[in-house]
Design a binder for these strands. Sequence first.
DNA 1: ATATGTTATTGAATATTATTCAAAAATTAA
DNA 2: TTAATTTTTGAATAATATTCAATAACATAT
Lengths: 150, 150
Amino acid sequence: MKDIRQKIVALLKEGYATPQIARMAKRLHEPSTTIHYNIKRLEKDKVIIRYKGIFTYAKIDQGYCTFLLINLVQEKYADPESVAREIAKSDLVESVNVITGDYELLLKLRCKDVDEYYAFVKGAIKKHGFAKVISLTSIKELKGEFVQKS
Amino acid sequence: MKDIRQKIVALLKEGYATPQIARMAKRLHEPSTTIHYNIKRLEKDKVIIRYKGIFTYAKIDQGYCTFLLINLVQEKYADPESVAREIAKSDLVESVNVITGDYELLLKLRCKDVDEYYAFVKGAIKKHGFAKVISLTSIKELKGEFVQKS
DNA sequence: ATATGTTATTGAATATTATTCAAAAATTAA
DNA sequence: TTAATTTTTGAATAATATTCAATAACATAT
């Protein structure tokens, strides 16, 4: 049942990981109880939010990466945040930022392919009011949330 | 010694976390050995690259987030990748993408403040050949690698 | 359909690791 | 300096990952 793999990946996207206290202890030459104590503090203080898995996106149907620069229609211009919050709900959306400059929003999308990307943009323009959308397609990702690559 | 905290954060940025097999097993109603087996497969197949911590950036001196759209100088235009690889080495750089459109590179920076950001840009323009740089400053991050927020 | 090789599932045993606890040390505030 | 608070740490325990071997499921060829 390959089904389990997908479920595992889904869980690891959200969290379901935990720090390796013993390994950190060895690396830092400190007792593991000291590391444990300090990690719990960092968690309580919300410095650390969670622990999650990092993936090879092409292998989980998210190989097509694009950035969208968005101008909102006049009516929504005053409150980009509520639009952003709505957009953020989509699984295809990796990040949403309200920005300064010529555009109001910057999205990072991770889609399976151009078709999925197109469907998203088409739907989003209609659903939320986008006056203008500039798409920047990533043709090579040299660094991402997952540290370095080739 | 608050020093330990910083070291822990540094390690968790790179990895030093591990999946919670038992918790996933309960959640998915599967034996933990089944989850274990499948996770190891995902790791071997490089579907899962690593596990890392996610932070509140403002609390680890990275509260100032910007995106840079970059045009390379003529001499470097033919090989944006090698420039990108160099830039990627900086700790301030969260992501580097070679993109299509009016610009060659898109960077995401996480700095402590405007000063650090300015120092980076100033240095980068000189060091790597940037013909033009457009900065998009994030004034609100509604979604990031760390799932949802307020 | 049946045999054969491969991959996946699983329980039981073991090895590792996280967690708790209590005491001591270090730091901070008064 | 003293008192209060936070941090460090070792020992004991609890929880979890890992290994192993057996079985099941699946795919492929005959």
